[in-house]
Amino acid sequence: MLPWIQLDRATIPGDGDELRLKSRGSEFSIMLGSTELMNSRLSGSEEALATLAYERIAGRKNACMLIGGLGMGFTLRAALGVLPDDARVVVAELVPAVVEWARGPMAELHKGTLDDPRVEIHIGDVGGLIRSKSTAYDAILLDVDNGPDGLTRPSNDSLYNHTGLRAAKAALRANGVLAVWSSAPDSAFTRRLREVGFATDEVNVRANGKRGGARHVLWMATKR
């Protein structure tokens, strides 16, 4: 078996923790310490995050989608595959190196999506972007941690508490959807979504789509 090779490392702004990009042949992995945040062989649930969110806003003119976390680009690619030409996608990525990796060693994975005219890349905290906007987005997709807690950095907890969820709701247009990816269920998060006033569906999906894999959870929370 081919060995893993570390290609690069990058400090997460604000807390000093480090992401590491590794490869093994054509396979890529992004690590935080000993935790694998994402792997290029597993894309099904990240793609479903985009397609299921789009189903809830399909037919809207000039739709605007905010994606928190570029990662390996699976969610962005899936979004561009279903969104019409008049749509706009804002991708907020906190770590500048992740965008550099998308244009460099992982360019084949991203397949030119960063150059799509519908795409705007925002280098910075998705939470700050959410808090700065009102009724700006038809969908907000969050895949910046391994679930609704601040894994990659503690300050991300503010995305998932009552205050953060109210900010997301305010940033959504009428009947907009907040979609959140998780590696595991979290009943407390489901309860918080409903307490804030979202109509909430909890969807179980496979890590690798129809090919199976671990079960992941997607929350589809609609602004009522």
Rank of each mutant, 00 (worst) to 15 (best):
A171V: 06
A174L: 08
R56S: 10
W219G: 06
G33Q: 12
D138C: 03
Y54Q: 07
D8S: 13
A63D: 11
I57M: 12
R166H: 13
G124S: 08
R118T: 08
S43T: 14
L52I: 01
I12L: 03
D85Q: 14
V144A: 12
H122C: 01
R56V: 03
R215S: 14
A207H: 10
N175I: 00
P185A: 02
A48C: 10
M31H: 10
D186C: 09
R20N: 06
Y137M: 12
R60V: 02
L37V: 12
K22S: 14
A207N: 04
D138M: 01
A48W: 11
A53C: 09
L2F: 14
G14W: 10
R103W: 00
E100A: 08
R131S: 13
S134D: 15
V144I: 15
N156P: 06
P3V: 09
D85E: 15
R118C: 05
V203S: 04
T11S: 12
H216D: 11
L178F: 14
A87P: 08
I12T: 07
E18L: 06
L165K: 07
V126Y: 02
L52C: 07
R173S: 02
P117E: 08
A184S: 14
S187F: 13
V82M: 07
G164P: 14
G16F: 12
D115A: 03
G104H: 00
G176D: 06
S183K: 12
A167V: 00
D138H: 15
P105S: 03
L114N: 00
V91T: 02
T190C: 10
E93A: 07
G81D: 11
G69E: 02
G147N: 05
D145T: 05
D17P: 02
G213E: 11
P13C: 05
I67M: 08
M220Q: 15
M72S: 01
L178S: 04
N156L: 07
R56T: 01
G112L: 01
Q6R: 15
A50R: 03
S23H: 13
P13E: 08
I30S: 01
G44C: 03
R131Q: 14
S43R: 14
G33L: 12
N62M: 07
F28E: 05
G14Q: 11
A48Q: 14
A174G: 11
K169I: 04
I67W: 04
P3W: 12
T200P: 09
I67V: 11
A184G: 01
V91F: 01
R192V: 08
A174T: 09
D15G: 10
H122T: 00
D201Q: 15
L52K: 13
L109I: 00
D149G: 05
V217D: 04
G127P: 09
G68V: 03
A63Q: 12
A50E: 10
A10Q: 10
R56F: 04
R77H: 07
L80I: 05
V144Y: 03
N161H: 11
I123R: 01
R118H: 10
R20V: 13
L76G: 00
I5D: 15
G68R: 09
N208Y: 03
V91G: 03
R103C: 00
L70S: 02
A48E: 15
R173V: 03
N208P: 05
A174R: 13
R153Q: 11
R88I: 00
V203R: 02
G104E: 00
V90N: 03
A92W: 01
N156D: 02
L159T: 03
D86A: 05
G176H: 07
T51I: 10
T75C: 13
